[in-house]
């Protein structure tokens, strides 16, 4: 079968389709009058909830961190401070996501629009990596100098190694939750849920678009 035959086949299908395809005008009218949200609404809503919760969290725990610094509770205040700094940065990234979402225009060319959507996914991944950085603070906030002095064996033998392990895991994930690892099994398992689930396909799409360039 030659190319011209394929095109003629397609044309015949088009001619038939013109006769057989009917637009349900009533439903179309309903849709343009009453539908108010697109599929990106959910993504936007998650960001707004995140920003609201992030700001509230930073205010409350920022205050707690200041009070505990004044009281000289070093481990607790340092842990809370790290948590507040990471949360504030993640909240800032969520605000940036809203700007990225505003910039998405599906009437642009496929390459332009898809690049913007992928930028959003990339930033989302970076935010996830950043949040992992604070992993050790969940084990440091209850540490104290009294514990260090009274039970050095459990403090240095158990607690400190646990914190170091968490710090290593947190930092490793922060560095490695990156697109360059998309072909690794652990990465696929890690990002197989929610908004991250489509990352692999997004990467394949952009590679297919960019990788071949202008041949």
């Amino acid at each position: 079968m030659e190319t011209i035959d394929v095109i003629n086949l397609w044309k015949r299908q088009n001619a038939l389709m013109e006769k057989q395809l009917v637009v349900n005008k009533r439903l179309l009218n309903e849709m343009i009058r009453y539908r108010t949200s697109s599929s990106l609404r959910g993504v936007r809503l998650i960001r707004w909830i995140g920003i609201f919760a992030g700001v509230l969290w930073c205010l409350v725990f920022g205050f707690i961190a200041i009070v505990s610094w004044l009281e000289g509770n070093i481990f607790f205040s340092a842990s809370v401070s790290v948590n507040v700094i990471v949360t504030a940065t993640a909240t800032g990234l969520y605000i940036y996501h809203l700007r990225l979402l505003d910039a998405v225009d599906v009437s642009e060319t496929i390459v332009e629009a898809q690049q913007k959507l992928i930028k959003l996914k990339e930033s989302n991944l970076k935010t996830l990596g950043l949040l992992w950085l604070q992993l050790p603070v969940f084990s440091t906030w209850y540490m104290s100098t009294e514990w260090m002095e009274q039970s050095p064996l459990t403090f240095w033998g158990i607690q400190v190694p646990v914190v170091l392990l968490q710090a290593f895991i947190g930092f490793w994930l922060y560095r490695n939750l990156n697109y360059r690892n998309h072909d690794k099994k652990w990465f696929r398992w890690f990002v197989s849920k929610g908004e991250f689930a489509s990352i692999e396909k997004a990467i394949t799409f952009m590679k297919a678009t960019e990788g071949e360039g202008d041949e």
Partner: peptide, 17 residues
Amino acid sequence: PVTSFYNEQVLQVTEEG
């Protein structure tokens, strides 16, 4: 579903088709 007429379709192929 986003409309009350979800079982209907905006583009319908006639029975003949």
